[in-house]
Simulated scan of single mutants.
Amino acid sequence: MSSRASVLVLGTADWNQPIATNQHYAVRELAREFDVTFVESTGLRRPELSRRDLGRILRRLGRVVGKKGPIESAHDARPVPDGVTVVSPLVIPWHVPPFTWINRLLMTRLVRAWSSGGASRMLWTYTPVTFGLERSVPTVYHCVDLLGSQAGISQSVVEKGERALARAGAVAGASSEAVSRHLRDVGFRRIEEWPNVADLEVFAAGATSSPRRPRAVFAGNLTESKVDFRLLAELLGAGIEVHLAGPISEGGGDSHRAVRDLERAGAIHHGMVGPQELADLLRSSTVGLIPYVINEYTRGVNPLKTYEYLAAGLAVVSTPVPAVVPDSVDVFVAATAEQLVARVRDLLPVPDEAAVDRRGAHASSHGWRDRGVRMRALVDELTTTI
C-alpha cells in the first residue's frame, strides 16, 4: 500500500472545464508528491434551464449511470496527471435540507476508497459545501473568489459552509486581500496569503508562429457579470485591434449577443483555445487587457492572467480591480474608460527586447512551481501532525 498522503480535492469545476483554474493547477502540483482524488463540481451554482447546463447534467449522468469509469474520453483534452483520479459525483445541485442529507450519503459512498485508505488523509476544498468530510481530517479551504457574491450561488449556503470549515479548524488559502478579510470575518484562525499565479512555463515569451504586432487581447471568460463589454467597444471605436479568447458565459448567464456585437464592431473572437494556441496569441500581441466591471465579485478577484500576460511579454492595462497592483512600467490601472483607451493606445507599439525581458522577470516569482512547493509543504505539515 502506498505510504504517500492521500488528498481529496473537492472542486467547483469539472476536470475538462474549458479554462484551467486554480484547482486544476493545484491538483497537478499536489500530485507531484501525493495521491490525489479530484471530485468534480457538486453544483454550488444553481443550474439554469439552458443548453449548456442541461448538457453538463446529461454528460454527468452518462459518466455515472453508464459506468464509463471515473472520467470519459472528453477529458483527454486536459490530461490527467499521474497519481490523480478524477471522480464525477452524482449529487443533487441544491445544498439545503432535505437534499443536504441525501447528498452527504451520496458523497460518503463516492469517496469510500479515500476514507478507508491506510495513508495519511486530508481534504483540500474549493467549495464550502464539504458534506461533513472536514470533521475527521485536516482540511485546507483554498478560497479564490468571494463565492457568495456570484450570481446563481446561494450566499447563505456559502456562509454556512465557510463557518463550519472555520469551526473545524481548517486552514484557509486566500487569493486576494478582499478574500482574506472576508475569511477573517468568517472566523478562520489561520490564513495563507496565496495571490493567484500563472503557468509561466507555457506563456513565457519565446518563438511563435506569428510576429508580435500592435494589438490588444483579452483572454478569459466572456461574461457580462465580469467583463465590461462597453469598454471593449470603446477600444474598437478608437481604432484599436482587439482579440478575444475564451468561452462565452462559462458558469452562467448568456453573453452571446454582447460578443456578437463586438465582432460586428471588428473584434476577433478566437473561441476556446488550448494553452499553446493561447500562448502564441499572447506572444504575438502587445497589450493584455483586464477589462473587468467593478462589482462585489470582482473586488475579490485576483486575475492570474496578469502574470500570463507579463510572462508573454505584454504590458497589462486593467480597470481598478483592487488585486491588480500598478507598477508604472508594465502594469497600469485606469480609473476611467478614457484613461484606459489612452493607455492602451500608448502601449500598442511593439516593445523592444529589454521590455519583454523585464516583464518576464516581473512574472517569474508568480508561478505555479513555487506555489506548488508551498502547498505540498502545507500538506506535509498537516498530515504529519495527526
Rank of each mutant, 00 (worst) to 15 (best):
R78K: 12
I92F: 15
S88G: 00
I57Q: 15
G66V: 02
A77P: 00
P93G: 06
R78D: 04
D82N: 12
V87L: 01
V84M: 10
V87M: 07
P81A: 11
V86E: 00
V91K: 03
S88C: 07
P81C: 13
V84H: 00
V91L: 03
D82R: 12
V86G: 03
E72F: 09
I71L: 10
W94K: 15
R60G: 03
V64W: 05
E72T: 15
K67A: 10
A74V: 07
D82Y: 10
V80D: 01
V65M: 09
K68L: 14
H75Y: 12
S73R: 14
P89V: 03
V86F: 00
S73P: 03
P89W: 05
A77I: 15
L90I: 02
E72Q: 13
T85K: 09
K67I: 00
H75C: 12
V86A: 01
W94Y: 14
V84R: 05
T85S: 12
S88N: 09
V80Q: 05
R59Q: 07
E72S: 15
V86R: 00
H95P: 06
I92M: 13
P89F: 04
R60N: 09
W94E: 14
E72W: 11
T85Y: 00
R78M: 06
P81D: 08
D76S: 14
R63W: 05
W94F: 13
K68Y: 11
I71A: 10
V91R: 04
G62E: 09
A77K: 15
G66F: 09
H75P: 00
V91T: 07
P93V: 05
V64M: 01
A74K: 04
V64P: 06
E72P: 07
P93N: 08
V91E: 00
G69F: 04
V65S: 10
I57C: 13
G83Y: 04
I71Y: 07
A74N: 10
G83I: 02
P89H: 01
E72R: 12
D82M: 09
T85L: 00
P79W: 09
P70D: 06
R78F: 08
V65K: 05
V91N: 02
E72V: 14
P93K: 02
A77Y: 15
R60K: 12
V86C: 01
H95C: 05
A77S: 15
H75A: 14
G83S: 07
P89A: 01
V87R: 04
G66K: 11
H75N: 14
D82E: 12
V64L: 00
L61I: 12
R60D: 05
P93T: 09
L61Y: 11
V87F: 02
P79K: 10
L61G: 13
